[in-house]
Design a protein around this nucleic acid. Structure first.
Length: 248
DNA sequence: CCAGACGTTGTT
DNA sequence: GTCTGG
DNA sequence: CCAGACGTTGTT
DNA sequence: GTCTGG
């Protein structure tokens, strides 16, 4: 699963990472997100294929995908907390996701994500990242929803999940899921492929040996403070976890 | 056929 | 313990 | 996912 | 819009 992640880079830096240079003036300034909570449905930078010109573009979409067929604002705000993630196993058959899976793939730029380990009855937050990629991509899907009431257009997205790999299943010691992270050489393929088996073949757990993680402070879920600050991704030690071995 | 849902996570 | 709201 | 509530009566 | 349960 993945309900909390980090993209603490400016839109300009993200554009450079994906070789999207020409449109820079339009997309900055944009706030960085040391921590975004899915249930806040923030606007976040998304990379997608520009249908007309064929090159990549950045758009800003709300996390929590509202499918195009949803009727009414109330229904839209009700469903988006349940569509933060989409299971890869059923993404091609679920009514909420199959259309977006077929026609609207996207990359979700990230610098890391957050997960809680359950240990002796307590929960410990971890920051999980890919040391060899400052910005990496979750595989995502998006959709366009138009409000009947206001005519307003909403672009929103979901992050695809798969079974956890070795590292992430140790942090998730109960149920084992993780967001799909794409190898950079597969990013374009994810945006371009049009055969369902080809697309599903890309949705695999990322190489555990290329990932790393450490504990962070409980500031991340402190409701009395803004968690979107650098301190939220800084290492924080819990003495009772000292014996824990993540790499083995 | 119609009505109603449409989703994920976690669980010693 | 379990549900709800964010 | 986590944090926080979890109930009723009567109401200027 | 499309699927599922009754």
């Amino acid at each position: 699963m993945c309900y909390h992640y980090s993209i603490n880079k400016t839109a300009t830096e993200i554009a450079e990472r994906y070789n999207i240079l020409p449109r820079l003036p339009q997309i900055d300034p944009f706030p960085v997100h040391y921590h975004t909570n899915g249930f806040d449905h923030e606007y976040l930078p998304i990379v997608l294929q520009n249908v007309k010109e064929g090159d990549l573009n950045i758009d800003f979409m709300q996390w929590g995908m509202v499918p195009a067929w949803v009727k009414g604002e109330e229904h839209a705000s009700g469903i988006r907390s349940k569509t933060l993630n989409a299971r890869y196993e059923t993404i091609d058959v679920k009514p909420s996701f199959k259309h977006a899976f077929k026609y609207r793939p996207c990359l979700v730029p990230a610098t890391g994500y957050f997960e809680w380990m359950h240990y002796n009855g307590k929960k410990y937050p971890f920051f999980i990242f890919v040391p060899d990629m400052e910005i990496f991509s979750f595989a995502g899907i998006w959709d366009e929803w138009i409000s009947e009431q206001t005519g307003e257009i909403l672009h929103s997205f979901a992050i695809i999940t798969c079974e956890a790999n070795r590292l992430t299943s140790k942090i998730h010691n109960a149920r084992k899921r993780m967001p799909v992270i794409l190898d950079p050489q597969n990013e374009n393929e994810w945006l371009m492929a049009d055969e369902i088996p080809k697309k599903k073949a890309l949705l695999k757990p990322f190489d555990s040996s290329r990932m790393n993680a450490y504990t962070i402070s409980r500031l991340i879920t402190d409701r009395n403070r803004d968690s979107n600050i650098p301190g939220v991704v800084r290492p924080f030690k819990y003495p009772e976890l000292n014996d824990l071995e993540l790499s083995g």
